[in-house]
């Protein structure tokens, strides 16, 4: 599989993703890697029907995503990965899927999280995952829309959570 783009965005398939980022990715498929969505048949169906024109949408867990990535049948397929959180992205990368750059678009605020930008809130688990990703030399590109300036998420994490 040829990785065109990888993004964390817990709204998954929505306006910014279908119009701008899908065109930027120019991939055959969107693969959503999320245990939570994978276990929820209605959400799966909702995401599949919202696929951008000309793109297939698949929803898988990390294990299945690694198997599909290594399946020679999909060697020439281009893919746009979507995640809801950095831990599953980290698990995929540690499983051998070579994502070089991870775009971080949106992670909504929930109890127990701290807001680091207008669109991104993190808990301690997220912070640990991002720091691990940085150590694996994954480029962490914090950008909601394409025209935003690129910010390394670690700068924002250090500002809010303090340095490691």
């Amino acid at each position: 599989m040829i990785i065109k783009l990888a993004r964390i965005d817990d709204r998954l398939i929505h306006g910014q993703v279908t119009t701008v980022w899908s065109k930027e990715a120019n991939a055959n498929r969107i693969i959503i890697v999320s245990q939570e969505v994978f276990n929820d048949p209605i959400r799966k169906q909702l995401l599949k029907q919202a696929s951008p024109p000309g793109m297939k949408v698949n929803i898988v867990d990390v294990e299945k995503a690694i198997a599909v990535f290594n399946n020679p049948k999909y060697n020439d397929e281009t893919v746009f990965y979507l995640f809801t959180n950095p831990s599953e992205a980290l698990a995929l990368i540690e499983g051998g899927v070579p994502i070089k750059t991870l775009n971080i678009g949106g992670m909504q605020f929930k109890d127990g999280k701290k807001q680091i930008t207008k669109a991104v809130s993190l808990n301690e688990k997220d912070v640990a995952a991002f720091r691990k990703l940085a150590k694996l030399n994954v480029n962490l590109d914090l950008r909601v829309v394409k025209t935003d300036p690129t910010t390394n998420i670690l700068t924002k994490i250090d500002e809010t959570f303090g340095p490691e």
């Binding site: 910014q16 119009t19 394409k146 025209t147």
Partner: peptide
Amino acid sequence: AQAFKEAVEMVFGK
């Protein structure tokens, strides 16, 4: 028209 411009900026950017 103004509202559409604002909506475009929410999705696409400036």
